[in-house]
């Protein structure tokens, strides 16, 4: 049986990532962690946005609910991380299912508006909930872990594993029967329904997976920053990045968000340090609008177009050669 090059590549990435924690200094893991966080968010957004064609503006809400699940568990019993992560996935998966169930039977735009407003209401809830610190915020105290150089290195490796898992899941959804059903919904929902595609069930699967994945991305956030308060957890930049990364990379396949996240994430970390963090936000916004308007298929689409163009040129040249001969 032939193994897709994806798996050895994923394994190699993970091994290199783990090895790197022993050679580079702390800054790279902090930056790398943030890039990976963006990558998971982008991959999750794209399952609904790119594969199914429904826009989620409330990514920050799902992310923050993942983070707050961690805070609640930490305050209550402080369980190990391998309990926290699945718990966040379940909470946010259910949140996605609920939001989808209430609004996905209507036109897609209502879902988009509902998710946007939902993020704001969830923020209000967290501000009013004393148990998780309310508006003041909550502290998380982390303990040292064996084997790893530092706690951040440990979180980076965890995040790397989660990111690879997320991409693998998105890749599976992309190629599976479910993925074909989702693509059918994106292209023409009525036609898909008529052809016997269970549209509502597939849409609900895809919102649930999206929510769960975003929850996972947020679950480690309290441990990473060690202090959570509503304004930074529900930050708009999380939602903007989740949309901008797939849009810039290309939304139609699982590869797009990965490329977009690695590129945009790295650019952001670079500008934050070398220019300013406000300008960094402006760059993200301008890139998003620019790509959406001028290159709707993203970088993947541009690359495909370029490949087609060079092939055409080559064929034309061959045609010229044979004509002159």
């Amino acid at each position: 049986m032939r193994i897709a090059p994806f798996w050895p590549l994923a394994a190699a990435t993970f091994v290199i990532g783990v090895a790197a924690t022993f050679y580079f200094n702390e800054y790279y893991f902090v930056a790398g962690y943030l890039v990976l966080q963006g990558l998971i968010m982008a991959t999750a957004w794209n399952i609904l946005g790119g594969f199914t064609g429904y826009v989620n503006f409330g990514s920050a809400g799902f992310f923050a609910m993942g983070a707050y699940t961690s805070v609640v568990l930490y305050t209550a019993i402080n369980p190990p991380l391998f309990v926290v992560i699945p718990a966040a996935a379940v909470v946010c998966g259910l949140l996605g299912l609920g939001a989808g169930y209430l609004t996905l039977r209507l036109r897609g735009v209502y879902f988009a508006i509902a998710t946007l407003a939902m993020a704001i209401v969830l923020e209000t809830l967290m501000v009013n909930w004393e148990y998780v610190g309310g508006a003041i915020g909550a502290f998380i105290i982390t303990e040292d872990v064996p084997f790893f150089a530092s706690y951040n290195a440990y979180l980076f490796v965890l995040m790397l594993a989660l990111a690879i898992g997320s991409v693998a899941l998105a890749r599976y959804l992309n190629f599976s029967r479910i993925g074909r059903g989702l693509a059918a919904i994106r292209d023409d929902e009525v036609a898909a329904e008529c052809a016997g595609v269970p549209t509502l069930r597939l849409k609900l699967i895809s919102t649930t997976v999206m929510g769960a994945m975003m929850g996972v991305a947020g679950a480690l956030y309290p441990y990473f920053v060690t202090f959570v308060e509503p304004v930074s957890a529900f930050s708009l930049i999380v939602a903007v990045n989740a949309i901008a990364m797939p849009m810039i990379g290309g939304t139609s396949t699982w590869v797009g968000p990965v490329i977009g996240a690695l590129l945009l994430g790295s650019v952001q970390e670079w500008t934050k340090v070398n220019i300013s963090s406000e300008l960094n936000l402006l760059i993200v916004g301008v890139l998003l609008v620019g790509f959406v308007a001028l290159a709707p298929q993203g970088i993947v689409g541009l690359a495909q177009k370029f490949a087609a163009w060079t092939r055409e040129q080559r064929e034309k040249r061959r045609g010229d050669d044979s004509a002159t001969a």
Partner: peptide, 29 residues
């Protein structure tokens, strides 16, 4: 960019979302 080409649902929404974000950041700057 969007209405003529029939891409208003996904790309059009992202376009306005981007504009909203740009306006906010410019005012902050």
């Amino acid at each position: 960019g969007f209405e003529r080409t029939g891409r208003e649902s996904l790309a059009g929404l992202a376009f306005f979302f981007g504009i909203m974000f740009i306006l906010e950041v410019v005012i902050i700057l």
